[in-house]
Design a protein around this nucleic acid. Structure first.
Lengths: 220, 220
DNA sequence: AATAAAATAGGTCCTTAGTCCTAATTTTGA
DNA sequence: TCAAAATTAGGACTAAGGACCTATTTTATT
């Protein structure tokens, strides 16, 4: 059981019932966000899905903003947990770890949750500082892992180079979401995308040279 | 001046005043969508931005859904126009054309319009069939160009292979949007991303083999 | 069992939003 | 010029949504 870092009212969640209620609320909110998008997410719908009254929902989350903040943290934490499990199960070879992570991420793009949640998060992050913070914290952790692996695979690169290659690789994979995600037109091409991605990114990580990344004219 | 394929009421836009009004409406809607997201886009805000009444706005667009549909078409058409101009100005060499298009797309990610509009479009397309259609029509046209160039660069590939490589490349670039777009944390790394992308994608297009894409076991 | 805190229900208030209606005003072509 | 069509303003209606308040019930602890 993951500890919940809640932005709710002081006192809430002290009893078991309250703890479970919070999980129910987050779960229901997550489902509605995934199925109907942020514009379809309302306090009333959430309360109805959980089977409680709006008054009770506001007891746990004073504002919708508070709820959204906890919701994003909740989903992001769950994703990171799985990500770390995958890495830890992938053995010691950096190449194998990288391939395992690439395959996990691309396979995961095709789950309904990821297909719908992340584009919603990207859109939210354009206007909501909280969403933006959560999102970039998440991807920062993912990039950190990739950066380590890239530097092992290609010791000639500087830390800055590794960071940039990691940024390119992780961002590229996310880009597949709206196209090969669950229910998307190219969903059936996911296996091909996985093969192209593993090969292309591994080749990139192993062969790119520092001089090919850095700017030639010193742009400070 | 681009012809407008409008989903508005019959009769509207017959006078010059009406034609200009429609453009004002689409422009204002686009600005609000980009600045406040879909959840912040309301008929009243649009009317106020244009300087007309809600009654008048509904004279042009009976429903918000109709307006959104035209709005997405409008922005997408504008993007495609620019895209085609870039290709036509890039000379005859497929490699040069491809590099020019990659650089255009990545540079464009860093405009406020693209940074904010496209994630919104991806999110909308999860729940709005109309948005989904417009989005995939757009990317289909972009992929078609890349597919042609890839097949010229690598004649050993089948049409299906070219399509998949084009899908991978175009989707990968889009993935950079939430990270190196205008105002995003890695905006300053855009030049590095451009260098990595042009090199990586060109290498991929020229060197990938059909056997590395196709599934080994017939997963029909 | 008693008690204090937590959890809940049910209602209210106010704002925003989408849609529609009708009477005026403006535009354009015959 | 003048009549038909297009454009416009200014409301009105209804629904949905966020937030708040209070009385009641439930829970856990002593």
């Amino acid at each position: 059981m993951r500890a919940l870092k809640l932005q709710n009212r002081p006192g809430t969640g002290a009893y078991n019932k309250g703890q479970e209620r919070i999980l129910q609320i987050l779960q229901a909110s997550r489902d509605i966000l995934i199925e109907q998008g942020y514009s379809g997410l309302s306090m009333r719908k959430i309360a109805a899905a959980v089977g409680i009254t709006i008054g009770n929902l506001h007891y746990y989350y004073r504002t919708k903003k508070d709820l959204l903040s906890d919701l994003l943290d909740h989903v992001i934490e769950g994703y990171l947990d799985t990500f770390n499990v995958v890495r830890n199960n992938a053995g010691n070879s950096p190449a194998k770890q990288m391939v395992a992570l690439i395959e996990f991420i691309i396979d995961d793009l095709n789950t309904q949750e990821t297909t719908n949640f992340f584009p919603e998060l990207w859109a939210l992050s354009n206007h909501d500082e909280n969403a933006s913070d959560g999102m970039h914290t998440l991807y920062g952790k993912v990039r950190k892992v990739f950066k380590e692996l890239i530097l092992e695979l290609n010791p000639s690169l500087s830390g800055e180079d590794g960071e940039q290659v990691a940024l390119f690789i992780t961002a590229s994979m996310e880009g597949l979401t709206p196209f090969v995600g669950r229910g998307k037109p190219w969903e059936s091409k996911l296996p091909g995308m996985k093969r192209i991605a593993t090969q292309s990114f591994l080749h990139l990580a192993q062969n790119i040279k520092s001089s090919e990344i850095a700017s030639l004219q010193g742009t400070k």
